[in-house]
Computed example of a mutant assay.
Amino acid sequence: MMSVDLQDVSVQLNQKISSIKRFMQLKNMCSDPSLTKILQKIGLELSGIRDTLDIFQMQILQQQTELRSLQDLRKAVQKNSETAHHLLENIPAHLPKKAAQTNTADPKDARVQEGPANPEPEKNSARSKHFVREMEYLLMEEFNQVPGYMKGRMTYDQVNAVIKELNATVKAKYKILNQPMKSMSNTTRNQYHAFKEQETKETKGQYFFVEADIKDFTHLKVDKKFHVILNILRHCHRLREVRGSRLVRYVLI
């Protein structure tokens, strides 16, 4: 153990002696005119190295700032991706068709505006004759503005599902009304005359349905919930009522 300790002490003493010799050599170089220029050149090189290190440090700081920005951007993109994925999995069954509003003008007005510039008035007139207007689906914003006491537990999707059935009812009804009499069966002819008897001056040129039409053309139940939805549609200006002869006509607006 003693020899090992003396050996360690010897190594340490030799290292210190080597360091002292190196310091003395460097000190002597300062007094040697032939080595002064070399020391100055080394000093300039060290100064250049420090400047380069400063540039590297600035670039590192800049890259750190850019890295933080990219990390924030990554978080924002990830959040938007999750939102888009959620929207994709929760697409409403019935999308609103606000843009189609311009196509719901009265067919007679359309023919008047076209005038003589229309090269085939007879064909367009035939198409207008079979035009059937549809009720626009509710927007979520409209549904949210309906008072709570009016919609109760009714959901947005339930209301638009009923609108889909009402549009099918109107389409089926007016398909019969636009059908040539010669091609009608006895049952269809009876329906045609029943539909004509429902019309009044207020419904002339309008599209409407009655509760009997709902029962004939859909599987909807004309119950309390159904009338709640009709109230919502009246509130949202999708239809209005025309009463007379003990019959309620629901006219599309």
Rank of each mutant, 00 (worst) to 15 (best):
Q78Y: 06
T52K: 12
S47C: 05
L70I: 10
I55P: 03
L67M: 10
G48R: 02
F56L: 14
R68Q: 14
G48V: 02
R50C: 01
Q64G: 06
S47G: 00
G48S: 14
Q57P: 00
Q62S: 15
L53E: 09
A76W: 05
R50M: 04
E66Q: 15
G48T: 02
E66L: 12
Q57H: 06
L67Q: 13
L70T: 10
S69W: 04
F56N: 06
D51L: 05
E66P: 00
S47D: 04
V77Y: 03
Q63H: 14
A76Q: 12
I55M: 10
K75H: 09
D51G: 01
F56W: 06
R50F: 01
R74Q: 13
M58C: 15
N80E: 11
I49L: 03
Q62I: 09
D72P: 01
K75T: 13
R50T: 02
Q59T: 07
Q59C: 09
S47N: 04
G48A: 08
S69N: 14
G48Y: 00
T52E: 13
T52G: 08
N80M: 09
L73V: 06
Q63K: 13
R50N: 02
V77K: 06
Q63R: 14
R74H: 14
L70G: 01
Q63S: 12
N80D: 10
D51A: 04
V77A: 04
V77F: 04
D51N: 01
M58N: 15
Q71L: 08
I49D: 01
A76C: 07
T52A: 11
N80Y: 01
Q59F: 08
L61A: 15
R50Y: 00
M58Q: 15
S69M: 11
I55S: 09
L67I: 07
L53S: 01
L73G: 05
S47P: 03
L61D: 13
E66N: 10
T65A: 12
Q64S: 11
S69H: 10
